[in-house]
Write a protein that binds this DNA or RNA. Sequence first.
DNA 1: CCAAAAGTGTTAGTGGTACACCCATGT
DNA 2: ACATGGGTGTACCACTAACACTTTTGG
Lengths: 224, 224
Amino acid sequence: MFNEIRSHEITVDTVILTIRKKKLKVLLVQRTQEPFKDHWALPGGYIRLSETLDDAAKRVLMEKTGVKNVYLEQLYTFGDPLRHPKSRVITVGYYALIRSEDIQLSFDTDQTKAVKWHSIYELPSLAYDHKQIIEYAIERLRERLEYTPVAFQLLPKRFTLTQLQKTYEMILGKEIDKRNFRKKMLSSELLTELEEMTKEGSKRPARLYSFNKAYIEKNHLKQY
Amino acid sequence: MFNEIRSHEITVDTVILTIRKKKLKVLLVQRTQEPFKDHWALPGGYIRLSETLDDAAKRVLMEKTGVKNVYLEQLYTFGDPLRHPKSRVITVGYYALIRSEDIQLSFDTDQTKAVKWHSIYELPSLAYDHKQIIEYAIERLRERLEYTPVAFQLLPKRFTLTQLQKTYEMILGKEIDKRNFRKKMLSSELLTELEEMTKEGSKRPARLYSFNKAYIEKNHLKQY
DNA sequence: CCAAAAGTGTTAGTGGTACACCCATGT
DNA sequence: ACATGGGTGTACCACTAACACTTTTGG
């Protein structure tokens, strides 16, 4: 009985999301070993004795992408005894939102064959229950988007309203009316209007905005 | 390193909520052993190798209250390395809603001195981080109440609108306008109006309603 | 001058909130 | 007859959703 208790293993797995090439993407690593050799999996790892769960997730994130100070939230804990084919592994799922521009992918070639971004609508064959974890993350992100300004975590510091709208659309997987969207955003206190306009674009320049961080405190929202 | 990984322990702790004597209450057990001897704690236990996390929470619930088929939802996983004074114990928090009428409290006197309902506004000194877990459960319950018919899990099969309103008020911790509440409830499809009226009450009889279970499926809500 | 993205208002409907009095029953 | 809880409607406001054309720039 006591022996039984001791033989659980516990890990974190992190659904790392970003926007690349106009698509919402998740970072996956390709396994070099059994079980699920050659399948893709979420970046994850064992939880060390001295670290909190959040710290374990941050460490995994740092190891794979080199970023820190990102939006990170615990999702759910997955513990089906059959989720791992060989032993009992319980995993605490996390999801993170990162800015594509900040990323510096890196990995240890012993354990990982490749690290790659995959569109959430075109997922490869996944190890364990990782497909379910990704779906859960997207569901949670959509819920958060309704009443919390998470989209800004995926955008650069300065962005146009069209970029913001596209971000919402990519997350929600549906189109939004442009006028209604702008009206709502501009009447909220989320945005700070900047002096600058876009210049690179080959068409009419667009106004740039930044996210008004004072909003977070004013509304008692969770910070990352 | 490998040894380190093996020395995590993992438990479930369940915040069991009900309504008794017009108050929202949580079930606590009094510890007979160190650490936290004589302090009150959430019912919990180790997760067995062969059971899912949900099953572990259901087992704990069954052991303490004798009820099954109740609303049960995973809350969050708590894993601060310092949350347990002696070893590294990660706990998966759950919360459950049960009908006061269904309860048959029972406990093993070796490990537990007492099992008792405590008003959520008058909590005793709690073991570990259990106060935080309870607060988290109440927060989650309030969120759920906004867009999901969880309150019915705490009520008998047949109930009056006033009972329903009081349940909402107890959970939210604030008063609700009677006319607006009734209008909203009656215009939803949540309720089935019954023929019967209350008789026991010493005042004007009240219409009885039951919860319309078809609503759950129609709106794709999670069942318990 | 054409293509492409930026920008802009009004209307109708829906849902939330505030608010006060009469009704049926038991004692 | 009175005390107690049951039951009812209206008006205002805020938010959502539907919907089409003009403006600015680069090529």
